[in-house]
Structure formats: C-alpha cells, structure tokens
C-alpha cells in the first residue's frame, strides 16, 4: 500500500493525475504486477501478458516499451515509473513529451537518430503481424517517401528536431501516444475507493 505523501508526490509530479487517479492506477498496477510473479513489481513477461494476452512470443516494441518504462534500468517497472510513463499518454500531457517519447521508442538502437534501417525493420514487423504482403519495391517507395518528407537535411537519418517538425505536420502519428482511458481512470478502476487515502 502507499502512503498519502507518496500518492500526493506522484500525483504532483505527473502534472496530470489527481491522488484518486494515482490510486486507481495502483489498482491496475497491482493487477499487472501480480499476474505471473507475485512480487508487486512489473516484470517484462507481465507487461507482455498485459499487452498481448500471452506471456511469450516476440514483438519488436516490447523491449523498447519496457526499457522506456524502466527508468532505473533494474529489470522491473516500479509503481513510480509506471505513473511517470503513463502520464506521457494522458490526453492532457504536453505534446512535446509525447513527441520525445515516440522518438525514443522508434530509435530502436538508441543512437539518437531514427535510421532508415530501423524504420525498415519496424515496417516489416507490422506487415508480418498484419499478414500484409508488400513487394520490396513498394516497401522501398514507402521508405523513400517518408524520408523525403522527414529527413530534411538528407543525411539518411531522422534527428530529434526533424522528428518534431515531421510529427507536427502529421499529428495523426501521435494518436497512439494518447490513451483516452486515462481521462476517466477512476471509473475504470472504482475499487480504489476501498483503499483510498483521500477524497479528491
């Protein structure tokens, strides 16, 4: 359980969640963190189970998502890390935070750039997942077109500044960076009222 001070601190830090919302997210956190290993911490398999409904299998983005949540890099997602990361996905979170988070997500090799090779790898992953077949020529054409638009200095990779400008021209690319659920999280997890420390 969490004390009122911890809750208030997390809510304050998030700039998006109230104390009751942090408590509701704690209900969700408890559920996920006890799904495989009952230690109150989210392990990678538990994140995978929550996202894909199966604890095994491969997904290109699972490692990146886990890594971005796991700020302390100790192999588990602690509750404060869970709140920090989810606050980026709040409908009211600053667009700048969403843009930066998405950049770090797509920078698979963490070189500080989104490289053509990485984009190719990510597109192939989604084509395989959705069982859509595209010819190599069409795939190259999609990549060419994307880089023509995004890579304004033509060095073959997308830097943070180019990414920001690109995303602002194509705001639909940030759609998956907003979770509408977070707007009404206390309704989704009403059981927080049994453990609440405060009435908002």
């Amino acid at each position: 359980s969490l004390g009122l001070r911890d809750l208030a601190h997390l809510a304050d830090e998030s700039r998006c969640f109230s104390v009751n919302e942090v408590e509701a997210l704690f209900e969700l956190y408890k559920k996920i963190s006890c799904s495989i290993i009952d230690d109150g911490l989210i392990h990678k398999e538990e994140l995978q189970l929550a996202l894909f409904k199966t604890p095994s299998g491969q997904n290109l983005f699972l490692d990146r998502v886990f890594d971005l949540f796991d700020e302390k890099k100790n192999g588990v997602i602690e509750f404060d890390e869970f709140i920090h990361a989810l606050s980026v996905f709040h409908p009211l979170a600053p667009v700048e935070d969403k843009i930066n988070f998405a950049f770090r997500l797509y920078d698979l090799r963490q070189t500080g750039f989104i490289e053509r090779e990485e984009v190719m790898q990510m597109v192939i992953a989604i084509l395989m997942e959705s069982r859509v077949k595209l010819s190599d020529d069409l795939l190259e054409a999609i990549l060419d077109k994307t880089f023509e638009d995004a890579d304004t200095d033509r060095d073959g990779k997308i830097c943070q500044e180019e990414w920001k400008e690109f995303v602002l021209r194509h705001p639909n690319l940030l759609k998956n960076m907003t979770l509408p659920y977070l707007r009404d999280i206390t309704t989704a997890f009403p059981s927080f009222v049994f453990n609440t420390a405060v009435e908002d």
Binding site: L49, F52, F61, M122, L127, S130, H170, N172, N176
Partner: peptide, 25 residues
C-alpha cells in the same frame, strides 16, 4: 491502404505500441 501510408503511420498500428491493452487486464 498500406501503400498510401507513410512508414510511421504503418508502424503506429503495431499491437506492441497499443497500450490500450493494459487497461483490459
């Protein structure tokens, strides 16, 4: 239509990037 989308529009459809699923546990 995949062919008419830019690469990142396609990428953002990946299930691993759909954190909505977290709330359906």
């Amino acid at each position: 239509q995949p062919a008419s989308m830019n690469a990142f529009e396609l990428i953002s459809l990946n299930r691993g990037l759909n954190l909505d699923n977290l709330f359906e546990t």
